[in-house]
Computed example of a mutant assay.
Amino acid sequence: MPSLRLPPAAPSLADAVAQAVRDGIAAGELVPEQTYSVYQLADLLGISRSPVREGMLRLAEAGLIEIRRNRGFRVLPPRAHDVEEIIEIRLALEPPAARKAALHGTDEQHAAIRAALDTMAIAAARGDDTSFWPADRTLHDLLLRASGNARAAAVVAQLRSTTALLGPPTTASGRTLTEIHAEHEPVVAAVLVRDGAAAEAAMRAHVAATGDLLVANLRP
């Protein structure tokens, strides 16, 4: 029987299930050759079947499992191509959004963006992953919303959640929180002086660099 454990801090029980299964795949507890049932997984985690089913749907959308009708699910090894597709979409959305945020964002929106970057800096100095990543997500979300496109913000938030399920963060490759914060600094600096072209270029460089490292983590 595989050994799985729910993470202590997750936004919802379904998120916790998805993370537990992802961790089980990474640890080799769940293997591609075997079919697992929702009932089995619910018993292993000590929870009801409803959040397990919801978590499985999220993993299926991410491409980490294949749901087999009336049988359960089968693990699919993470593919670098999945991350490449996600980064391609983010590159289509986030750099032009940074330009618009610089040119059209309000002073209040710019102040919130600056505050999110400051929170990242404090967390990076402390080596505090728990505070750093939410601030990182907030910064990207604020930039997208300051561009006037809330739908793009929702799409990117979902894509980032999917990426987190597909593999380890870029810090697994030796990239530090301080380095990640430093990549965001030129984006925010350009936004605050309303230099749209520089904001777009800096965001493109950041997202592309992140994508290269995420893909490298999944290459054999």
Rank of each mutant, 00 (worst) to 15 (best):
V155M: 14
T119G: 13
T106I: 13
P134C: 03
T35S: 13
I87G: 06
A182D: 09
S3V: 14
T138V: 00
T162W: 04
A124R: 08
Q19V: 06
R175V: 10
E61L: 10
I86Q: 08
T162V: 14
L93N: 00
R175L: 09
A172G: 09
V31H: 10
L6C: 07
G127K: 00
L159R: 14
D107C: 03
E185M: 06
A80I: 00
E108M: 11
P11A: 15
A123P: 05
L45A: 10
R71Y: 08
E179I: 07
A154D: 15
A92R: 13
E185I: 08
I87W: 01
R79T: 03
N70W: 10
L218M: 09
G72A: 13
A92M: 05
L44N: 06
H81D: 14
A42F: 05
L59D: 07
D15K: 00
E185P: 00
G63Q: 11
D195G: 05
E29T: 07
E185H: 12
A112F: 00
R99F: 02
E185R: 14
V156T: 12
L44T: 13
R175M: 04
E88V: 02
A199V: 08
M120I: 06
V207I: 15
A18E: 12
E108I: 13
A80D: 05
E183L: 06
A209Q: 09
V17G: 03
E183I: 00
R99M: 02
A62P: 10
I47G: 05
E88G: 15
L64R: 12
L139Y: 04
E94I: 08
E61N: 10
R137Y: 10
R49W: 06
Q34G: 01
R5H: 14
H110Q: 12
I25P: 03
M1Q: 14
L213T: 11
R219L: 14
D141A: 15
A152T: 14
G28N: 05
D141I: 04
E29D: 12
D195I: 06
L45H: 03
N217M: 09
V31C: 09
A205V: 05
S161F: 10
R68Q: 14
T138E: 11
I113G: 03
L213G: 01
L13R: 15
D23H: 08
L103K: 07
N149V: 05
L76A: 11
T35K: 08
L213Y: 01
A18R: 07
A14F: 02
A209P: 02
L213N: 04
A208P: 00
A123D: 07
R160M: 10
V52P: 07
A97E: 05
I86H: 03
